[in-house]
């Protein structure tokens, strides 16, 4: 069994590259039992959205030209 440390690392990787089926399964099994890692997964997805919006806000703040 992978630890929370390893699962959260995999969750993070999953945002930047496709994971294989085994890794995806390990994450699913783990988060079905672990609310901390489930929260981590949801919150990393939230942070991605936030970062993108922040980028857009930044463009607007500086006066979007392109």
């Amino acid at each position: 069994m992978r630890s929370c440390r390893e699962i959260s690392a995999l969750v993070s990787q999953g945002l930047d590259k496709p994971l294989n089926w085994r890794e995806r399964l390990e994450i699913r099994l783990h988060i079905s039992m672990c609310s901390s890692c489930r929260n981590f997964q949801l919150q990393t997805q939230f942070m991605r959205k936030a970062a993108r919006r922040f980028g857009t806000n930044l463009e607007n703040r500086f006066g979007k030209k392109s």
């Binding site: 630890s3 929370c4 440390r5 609310s35 901390s36 929260n39 919150q43 939230f46």
Partner: peptide, 26 residues
């Protein structure tokens, strides 16, 4: 760095808590 977030057995030191409707913050 990372060690601060986890105990030596790989469990969260203090795990992420639940955020209610985070996108409302946008």
């Amino acid at each position: 760095d990372e060690d601060a977030f986890f105990m030596s057995n790989g469990h969260w030191n203090s795990g992420p808590s639940t955020w209610n409707d985070p996108e409302a913050a946008f």
